[in-house]
Design a protein around this nucleic acid. Structure first.
Lengths: 244, 244
DNA sequence: TTGGCAGACTTTGTATACGAAACGCCGATA
DNA sequence: TATCGGCGTTTCGTATACAAAGTCTGCCAA
């Protein structure tokens, strides 16, 4: 509820207009209420939110730039379906950016910042215990963004926000059953390192946390046969490993 | 002007529609035909390109997401004016991302890739010799993007593209007179390192090249008194209360 | 002369309307 | 019976129209 606002009302970007539709749709996708690949017809969305197609299109375009929806010319909008390759690339980018950001954050975090992270952790725990999986993933992403905000580098914050958004989508697609507890544990350790102002620890913990996250994903090339076939026929990414 | 297309027709992003207006405006800003801070009225742009305000708004929104224009609610669109802080952050981000990207590129560059870079270098030289300053900066940015494309990581490519766009704007704002030759020299050395498949060299050369670029900028807080004053009065914290 | 106010003008924000392209259905034909 | 082509429906793309917010100018009063 209240955190819906916090996602986008972060102090970093004052100028960009974000309609209620944008926020709602974004939370819907990130909270896994809407499956990847789902079509998002303009009329329908306009009817739901009682706005005209004009504003729907604007929101859709913004979401498309965030890579959360895919705009196909003359076809419409669909919630994005990152490929495994994209997924790997996203995590490779995170592995580069986030340890650096964590180190920066550890270097300048105030007591209030640490307090804030602790509160966030609390919420995460609550969501996990309540079994609200989608919300937990969303809060987890917000945790990473929160660290970036502490680091105080707006460009890095943007990057992390973007990458975490996509990661949420990726997780909803490629997550294989595994214990979520370990993640919360990693977050705790991270906060401790930041509280201790240990940049090195924070950096290394972030690295291993991301490796851990990635290892929880099923990014092997096979899996659902129909999808692969469709991809090949469409000409999207035919080259890499062929599946018998 | 054939390169105008190449900027945005890169193979990385097939779905996003980019109107002629978007491309034209982008090139106008990046090529320094339009000064930062300039207002971009919807009607005027629509008249120039013979399109309705609908498509103008879409292009403006896309540009805003690229941080090339700034959208002020009920005020209109202005070409962005990065602050010195933002400028520093952009280059800090580049310092993190681009050496990594250069190393990746060096690791997998084909002969054709190196050839392409050489051709690009040639164009850069031509632009510099012709005294086309704006075009030279634009080509320089494209060079960095080209390296990212060779690296073959679409997320990194996006990042570099974004950061280079902003850098063009930053350079047009904060560049202090200095020799441009050194830059071309750095690019040459970079290509050589990539041709030799030396990831370490490429990484280090990129780092020093970026440091060099940054040192060519005047990012000190004072500088031209008039502009500074205007900045303070306009952007920072306008004295809310009435003047005694 | 200066400060404040009210009006018109300009520019943006949103809605609606119309044209175009794509998809699906159905019948005709080999 | 399977395939191909035409037609209708649906949805998107663009233009235009109207409403709201902001800005500027000119006037009046202190």
């Amino acid at each position: 509820m209240l955190e819906s606002d916090e996602i986008d009302e972060s102090e970093g970007r004052p100028a960009v207009r974000r309609s209620a539709l944008y926020i709602g749709l974004r939370n819907g996708i990130l909270g896994h209420g809407i499956d990847p690949g789902t079509k998002l017809p303009e009329d329908e969305l306009g009817a739901i939110y009682s706005v005209s197609r004009t504003v729907v299109r604007a929101a859709l375009q913004a979401l498309a730039h965030d890579r959360l929806v895919r705009l196909e010319p003359n076809r419409g909008a669909f919630v994005a379906k990152p490929t495994r390759t994209e997924a790997r690339e996203v995590f490779e980018a995170r592995a580069l950016v986030e340890p650096k950001v964590a180190a920066l954050a550890a270097g300048i975090a105030t007591h209030a910042d640490v307090e804030r992270l602790h509160r966030h952790l609390e919420e995460e725990h609550k969501a996990v215990r309540a079994g609200k999986d989608g919300e937990a993933v969303m809060l987890s992403a917000q945790f990473h963004v929160a660290i970036a905000e502490i680091a105080g580098q707006s460009i890095f914050t943007e990057m992390v926000r973007d990458l975490c958004s996509r990661s949420s989508l990726i997780i909803s697609l490629y997550w294989r059953r595994r214990d979520t507890i370990c993640e919360s544990h990693a977050h705790h350790a991270l906060v401790d390192a930041i509280a201790k102002r240990s940049a090195l620890d924070a950096s290394e913990l972030m690295t291993s946390h991301l490796v851990d996250l990635l290892s929880g994903l099923d990014l092997s090339e096979r899996q659902s046969s129909g999808k692969k076939l469709a991809d090949i026929l469409m000409g999207r990414s035919p080259a890499r490993g062929s599946e018998p």
